[in-house]
Computed example of a mutant assay.
Amino acid sequence: MGPAAALTGLLLAVTTTACGSLDERRDDARAAAVRFEQALRGGRTAVLCAVLAPGTREEVEQSAEEPCDRAVEGDRLPAGGTVRHMDVYGDQARAVLEHDTLFLAHFDAGWKVTAAGCEPRGEQPYQCEIKGR
């Protein structure tokens, strides 16, 4: 094996280790989706806001003109139920629940919800009740 192949192999190993395996990323994204859903069902608005991505939380606050925990109290997000399917593509994920679809992104602080209350619209993008910029 030449130096270029050895370097490529080393870089691939470092990248894979740093990002975690697909199963690990899927499990971590699923855990964030479950935390969001449990907070929603339990009326724990502070936890729900903590699971939102920074841009999404900011959009919620600006739209409602009040802090996130009070803004999400008035939102009528559906109770999504259990996670039926997870798609993970790099640092992006989609959690398909029984009655909702969540979109997530990976940040330094872990997986965060970027959009919730999302309905598919055929060939058009999802329509989401909560979303970031």
Rank of each mutant, 00 (worst) to 15 (best):
R30M: 12
G122E: 06
C19L: 12
Q62Y: 01
A105E: 02
P78Q: 13
A53R: 06
C128E: 14
V47F: 07
V60M: 06
A53E: 07
A93Y: 02
T15V: 09
T16E: 04
G110H: 12
G9W: 08
C19I: 11
E129C: 02
T82S: 14
D108L: 15
A115C: 02
P3T: 13
V51L: 06
D100S: 03
R25E: 09
A39M: 09
Q92S: 07
A39G: 02
L102N: 01
A71H: 03
L104R: 09
E24A: 01
L40I: 08
A18H: 01
L52R: 10
D75R: 11
Q124T: 09
R57P: 00
V34Y: 08
A46V: 13
E24T: 00
M1W: 03
L11W: 05
R57M: 12
D100H: 02
V34W: 10
V96K: 06
A95Y: 11
G132R: 07
L22Y: 10
E61F: 00
R26P: 00
D69S: 14
C49N: 05
D91V: 10
I130K: 14
E129G: 10
P125D: 14
F36E: 01
L77K: 03
T56P: 00
A32E: 08
D108R: 14
F103I: 08
A39Q: 04
L22P: 14
V14A: 08
L11P: 00
T82K: 12
A71L: 09
L40C: 05
T114K: 02
E58Y: 02
P125C: 15
R57I: 06
A29M: 11
R25C: 14
R70D: 10
L102K: 01
A13V: 11
A116V: 02
A95E: 11
E66R: 14
K112M: 06
P125I: 13
T101V: 15
E65Y: 01
R94D: 03
A39S: 07
C68N: 01
R133N: 04
V88I: 04
A46D: 12
F36R: 02
F107D: 02
S21F: 01
G80I: 10
E65A: 11
L48F: 11
S63P: 03
H106P: 05
G90M: 13
C118G: 06
V96L: 05
L48P: 15
V113D: 07
P54V: 13
R57N: 06
Y89Q: 13
R133V: 04
Y89W: 09
Q38G: 06
H85P: 01
M86V: 10
V34S: 03
T101P: 05
T45F: 15
A53T: 00
V34Q: 05
E58S: 09
R133A: 03
A50K: 15
A18R: 00
L22F: 12
R26F: 10
A109D: 13
S63K: 01
T45A: 15
A29D: 10
A31L: 08
A13T: 00
G43M: 10
L48C: 11
E119P: 04
E24Y: 01
V34N: 01
E66T: 09
V88E: 02
V51T: 07
D27Y: 08
A105M: 08
D91W: 04
E59N: 06
A33T: 09
V14N: 03
C49R: 04
A29R: 04
A116R: 02
G20F: 14
L48V: 14
A50R: 15
A105F: 08
